[in-house]
Design a protein around this nucleic acid. Structure first.
Length: 508
RNA sequence: GCCGCGUUGGUCAAGGGGUUAAGACGCCUCCCUUUCACGGAGGAAUCACGGGUUCGAAUCCCGUACGUGGUACCA
């Protein structure tokens, strides 16, 4: 019987949650759910210098908006609590000490100055690696070089120290990545990484391995930037828990900037005018707000969809996937090896598609919010629903509902008279005067009757109805946009339609 | 510098020895619609380069180039 699938996402709370982060979560989540497993959130808050208060809650909010809620985490608890590394601090030390006892790690007392000097020396000697490794460690101040007595007295005197892994030279570290296949590293190129810092906190290297073991993680998916440090993690697994217990690895491709090259960063979004964070992020230090996809008017379904297919597809021509479909169809083996450039135009296309396919009642709350934030109080949801139905095909982002349908609530302030005047004449003006009279007399207010009335009157006056539709549109909405004119009039109601015609007639 | 990973149109990509090298976004043309969209029909545009292996290479192998990531008491 195979172990239950357990995957984890382990962000460090240092700022907003960017596209790459959300996609990592998404792939983790899809894989877990596809195999009926658990998705665990773990927080790496061991880097005090960069830790930002509020960032953890922000990440949770983003996951919530995306609908990717963890089964275990600092906010929901779970059998392996705590889920914050700062609260697990003492745990890690035990494993670091065990490594030393087994001869796989050592105490190092080198000061930052001494480390700098060592690297300077290597540089002047023309060495092509600046690593703290088997070449140099016997020249440094550590428990390998020092006598046991010396080490103990240094320790007893409270000298600051770190614990470093002891990487043996001339060996190969081999592993199979679920996306990339077999990968090998020569241990001569792996340095003696710090595992436990002078402040007693673990580095990422120790923490992932210990936490993945303790939390029984079966599959570890993370960004490609971690590939070079994979050998350290694998060595740690070998020394501490045994390779047979190690999770399977998958290193996800990077999301790159649309122009030029390089990893997509927050700066690129600012520069190119699109968000790179899931939701608005306010940096508590600078109070600077970085725009998010949510606030720009993206639907979470579209956001998940566009992220999922940036580096993965199911091999068919399908482009639009719901979360349920993604869970069903996702396979980690089909994830690409190469990075993908982010294309905001295509991102908007996905949102447009999702708005078109989303039911009115599921759009209502979002649209209502947009109207109300524009100062339009919605009292009649039925009316709002009709507007949504009428304009949703032409909305790419949620705020477009207001630009496309705001005129249903507020008569246009300014009319695009330039669009009408060149072809305007007394006959047309007379048409609208008569049209109003007829509208007033109409017993009902139906789309078909309004349209019939308009067209028959035009015929009797010998004017092409098409030539009258544009002026009519401008009268009602203020410009050359919006849904079919007669639909608008029908929804606007008799009085308002007549009022707008009469007002416009004074301007043309 | 060293180490790792990658490279199919402008972008996302299917295809993994024989294909007219799918499809999508964007762009262009036309139809629909006397608004703008939606929808429909078309179009331009691609296998990084050089060597092999093979009857045959986008596909396999080796180089090169380019890109990208790492090279911290950051993750």
């Amino acid at each position: 019987m195979s172990k239950k699938v357990r995957v984890r996402f382990a962000p460090s709370p240092t700022g907003g949650l960017h596209l790459g982060g959300v996609r990592t979560v998404l792939y983790n989540y899809l894989f877990a759910k596809k195999h009926g497993g658990d998705f665990i959130l773990r927080v790496e808050d061991t880097d005090q210098a960069r830790y930002v208060a509020g960032a953890e809650q922000y990440i949770i909010d983003c996951l919530n908006w995306c609908g990717l809620q963890p089964d275990e985490g600092p906010h929901v608890g779970g059998p392996f609590a705590p889920y914050r590394q700062s609260e697990r601090k003492e745990l890690y030390r035990k494993y670091a000490e065990q490594l030393i006892a087994d001869g796989h790690a050592y105490y190092a007392f080198d000061t930052p100055d001494e480390l700098d000097k060592m690297r300077e020396l290597l540089k002047t000697k023309g060495s092509h690696s600046l690593q703290y490794d088997h070449h140099v460690r016997m020249n440094m101040r550590n428990s390998l070089k020092l006598l046991a007595d010396e080490t103990n007295s240094l320790l007893n005197a409270g000298t600051p120290y770190v614990i470093r892994i002891k990487v043996d030279p001339d060996d190969q570290v081999l592993f199979t990545d679920m996306i990339r296949g077999d990968i090998s590293f020569d241990t001569n190129n792996v340095d003696d990484k710090v595992l436990l810092k002078a402040d007693g906190m673990p580095t990422y290297h120790l923490a992932v391995v210990v936490d993945d073991f303790l939390m029984q993680i079966t599959h570890a998916f993370r960004g490609e930037e971690w590939l070079p440090s994979a050998p350290v993690h694998i060595l740690l697994w070998k020394y501490l828990f045994g390779l047979d217990k190690m999770p399977q690895w998958a290193h996800l491709p990077l999301i790159l900037k649309p122009d030029g090259n390089g990893k997509l960063s927050k700066r690129d979004g600012d520069r190119l005018g699109f968000p790179v964070y899931a939701m608005d992020w306010k940096d508590p230090k600078t109070n600077e707000i970085t725009k998010g996809f949510k606030e720009l008017g993206f639907l979470p379904e579209a956001f998940n969809n566009l992220l999922a297919v940036l580096g993965w597809n199911d091999g068919t021509e399908q482009e639009i996937f719901s979360l349920e479909e993604l869970i069903e169809k996702f396979s980690i083996e089909r994830v690409h090896k190469g990075g993908a450039k982010f294309d905001f135009e295509k991102a908007k296309w996905y949102n447009h598609e999702w708005i078109k396919k989303t039911a009115v009642e599921d759009l209502r709350a979002n649209v209502k919010e947009v109207f109300e934030s524009n100062g339009v109080k919605i009292t009649d949801e039925n009316y709002l629903d009709k507007i949504i139905t009428l304009v949703k095909d032409r909305c790419t982002l949620i705020p477009d509902f207001f630009t496309q349908g705001g005129f249903f609530f507020n008569a246009p302030q300014q009319l695009d008279t330039d669009a009408v005047k060149p072809k305007w004449n007394a006959d047309k003006a007379a048409f609208f005067v008569d049209f109003c009279t007829q509208l007033k007399a109409m017993p009902d207010w139906e789309l078909s009757t309004i349209e019939n009335e308009f067209k028959t009157l035009a015929a009797t006056k010998n004017i092409k109805p098409g030539e009258l539709q544009l002026p009519f549109r401008v009268m009602l909405v203020g410009g050359k946009f919006g849904p079919a004119v007669f639909e608008i009039a029908a929804l606007l109601g008799k009085e308002e339609t007549i009022r707008r015609i009469n007002y416009a007639l004074t301007l043309f």
